[in-house]
Design a protein around this nucleic acid. Structure first.
Lengths: 335, 335
DNA sequence: TTGTATGCGTTATCAT
DNA sequence: ATGATAACGCATACAA
């Protein structure tokens, strides 16, 4: 059996209270007993039991993080940021993969509840009413990451998607493009889907470029959908000189489709993505994209959450995006 | 305050013992009281406290997973497999990012110890003596994933790296290549580094191809190192017709270097990778590679661990690798 | 400076 | 069929 505080106390000839005191450097013992206790702790290899501690403190020093898909490049970058911040302040993180599934999400929420996590980070998903209900019932801090909820008042950290999409489109326009196709994300997604096409639409409008329905197509943010979307665009609406894809994975799919159709990027077609994932850097050609500071966003979200746990205070934050220029965009050929 | 089992008991006019019984469908109450208790539980929104439960059961239903880098494509695929298995059997997973750093690893080990996790999965890293010492002191099941330890007897799940490297090289040879370069992983890494160059060397030997030192170069498994390695190869040992990279990320780097040097893959140069990460599929051209079933490996490791927790039994496992053929390899041009 | 005792929310062992 | 109560390992208020 692992030794308990009692065993230590007995062996050191002191009370458990004293042991507890030196464990927390609280006052109330002589230097001599301190030494003795510390020595016994060392000898016995004593480690406090965080479970017992949690029971009495009502603090577990752990937070839960819900991802629609833990293994996406997006999530893993965010996770790293979260881990960075939590490790720094002695919190642990339990990861949950919701698969965007309501039942699965609810199950995880309940598990986290039962495990008494001190807070929750909810990533990239729409906050359904039932989630909100149990989240508030849990009565712990929550932060929304890369999503937000118009109806429920949880603090969030995210980019201004519409503005970012606007900027991406404008970037293309300023490079001289006028026939710009769009590969949108999930069509009905009010968070990452709709705002991005809206930003695209607005940029065109502001620059007096007619909006053409056939230049828009939708995917699900994933690689394969991007590839399919590009194939479709090529079939049904040839002649565009640039594409804005609402995610890097879709952009990578678009690149692949172009490659397989013998279309040279960026010579014959420009592509801009969204997210700045690792794939953007690794793509051929390296992908110009709208950068979100994912690592930092994860870090900030975790810090915000831990501060809320401590103080109850939080301030939502729109984080700045950037256009990271690589090699997939260039001015269209004039002829 | 969240209601406790006591509150439920009081409101239902029964004892806590009875509530506990219906909670676990143990015998010892009438159908009528069962109904009543269930109703009260529902009304009060009672959820059992897993911390208190863990204190008495000495089981937390959570495992710890240590990754050198949680956000690598490798880790995230593995993590998904782990999550899949654990979720299925009501375990939670806390993720730890070691950065391959001894101190950080030790700190996490101690945290996991204090948090009383039921088991640990140790991924892709060499098991140092001090890790082993605390791991055994913790006295809980451990499984090694994609690594193993010659000196310490923990069960493991991994691929036969040397054989896999042999097969990759042989594949290239059978396609007709004879001048085959190697981009190895960390030169001194006894787990993923050395065996892969050894397999390469052996394949050459078996097919009577002279081993040439200048065709070997080393990276650190990462993208940039692959790119640099390829640049170096191009400068110092031109004339090879194929490259075997010991990781997909390095292969992607090699692809990129080839692209920037105007070398066409696979027309002028064949490239084969290792891992079968998402990047392999997304690469241009799609990367032929040595496939490891990472999702399954994660899943199996978690299942193995949970079985060990339950029964104490485990059986190490060498998992089969495959050559997944895509478009980055073809026979060399003959002229 | 140090010790005793109580309680955190459960489960499990005894009674009844 | 049901209830009282003692643990689990720790922190802390209160005594001494």
């Amino acid at each position: 059996m692992r030794p308990t505080i009692k065993d230590v106390a007995k062996k050191a000839n002191v009370s458990v209270a004293t042991v507890s005191r030196v464990l927390h450097n609280q006052p109330g013992y002589s230097e001599k007993t301190r030494q003795k206790v510390l020595k016994v702790i060392e000898e016995m290899g004593y480690h406090p039991n965080a479970i017992a501690r949690g029971l009495i403190n009502k603090r577990t020093q752990t937070i839960g993080v819900l991802f629609p898909n833990v293994s996406s490049m997006f999530s893993s970058k965010v996770l790293r940021g979260i881990e960075h911040a939590t490790h720094h302040r002695d919190y642990s993180v339990v990861v949950c993969n919701t698969d965007k599934d309501g039942r699965r999400t609810m199950k995880y929420l309940n598990v986290l509840w039962e495990k008494q996590v001190d807070g929750i980070i909810f990533v990239s998903e729409r906050l359904k009413e039932e989630y909100y209900a149990t989240l508030t019932a849990m009565n712990i801090p929550v932060v929304l990451l890369s999503t937000f909820s118009p109806e429920y008042p949880f603090p969030y950290i995210k980019v201004d998607d519409q503005q970012a999409a606007y900027d991406a489109t404008e970037y293309l326009i300023k490079q001289g493009h006028r026939r710009i196709a769009l590969i949108g994300g999930t069509k009905s997604d009010p968070l990452a889907g709709i705002p991005r096409v809206e930003g695209y639409r607005q940029a065109l409008q502001n620059y007096g470029i007619p909006f053409r329905e056939e230049l828009i197509t939708y995917g699900d943010f994933g690689y394969h959908s991007g590839r399919r979307a590009m194939e479709k665009l090529l079939r049904t609406a040839p002649g565009f000189t640039a594409v804005f894809a609402a995610s890097d994975e879709m952009a990578a799919g678009a690149l692949s489709a172009a490659y397989h159709n013998g279309i040279k990027v960026p010579d014959e077609l420009s592509v801009i993505g969204y997210d700045d994932l690792q794939i953007a850097e690794m793509a051929i050609p390296p992908l110009t994209t709208v950068g979100q500071p994912l690592f930092e966003m994860g870090k900030w979200a975790a810090e915000m959450l831990m501060n809320m746990i401590k103080t109850g205070q939080a301030q939502s934050k729109i984080v700045p995006h950037t256009i990271v220029e690589r090699e997939s965009v260039r001015p269209p050929k004039t002829h």
